[in-house]
């Protein structure tokens, strides 16, 4: 087993363990911390897949901006009292059943190997130039629309955060 494979198993198992802890933890702050770890391990997997730019974005946007937002809201709400409640037995059984059904489907579908497509270009290296070039050619319009969407989301958040909703 070479170093690449060893890293894959380490990142995968650590990431799934973090995922389990996110949903099993009573305290939302602890959940959020394990979610940060999960995002960092996911960035490690992206690096193994040679998606360097996406791995950097993952750490900056998810582990940085999104999780800061989550922690801000958790601290703003002060939800200690509401979190002591126990899990509903029906919800737990239903959740585990749906999860297991999904895993079963996965086993059926992935039991035979999926062959990569015959087409495709040269080996990818995930560098900045390779990823960003299509934004100025084929993906120009979606890119601009995304910028507009971020603006609309910002206006919406400011409106929703006002004291009196009308």
């Amino acid at each position: 087993m070479n170093i690449h494979d060893a890293l894959f198993w380490f990142f995968s198992i650590a990431m799934l363990a973090c995922g389990l802890l996110v949903i099993a933890n009573r305290n939302p702050v602890t959940s959020a911390m394990f979610l940060v770890l999960l995002f960092v391990f996911m960035a490690g997997l992206f690096l193994l897949l040679e998606a360097i730019f996406i791995a950097a974005i993952q750490v900056l946007v998810y582990a940085g901006a999104v999780m800061v937002l989550f922690l801000f809201v958790i601290m703003l709400l002060d939800i200690k009292a509401s979190e002591r409640r126990k899990f509903k037995i029906l919800g737990v059984v239903g959740g585990i059943a749906v999860g297991l059904a999904f895993v079963w489907e996965l086993v059926i579908i992935l039991s035979q190997p999926i062959e990569p497509l015959a087409g495709g270009g040269a080996e990818l290296h995930g560098g900045l130039e390779e990823v960003v070039k299509p934004f100025f050619a084929h993906y120009m319009l979606p890119f601009e629309v995304t910028a507009l969407l971020l603006l609309v989301a910002m206006v919406g958040v400011v409106l929703l955060s006002k004291k009196e909703l009308k």
Binding site: L16, G19, L20, V22, I23, F87, G91, V92, G94, G95, I96, V98, G99, L100, F102, V103, L106
Partner: peptide, 10 residues
């Protein structure tokens, strides 16, 4: 699958 289970359980 973990994510789906989490949405339903929590």
């Amino acid at each position: 699958a973990l994510g789906i289970a989490g949405v339903i359980i929590r």
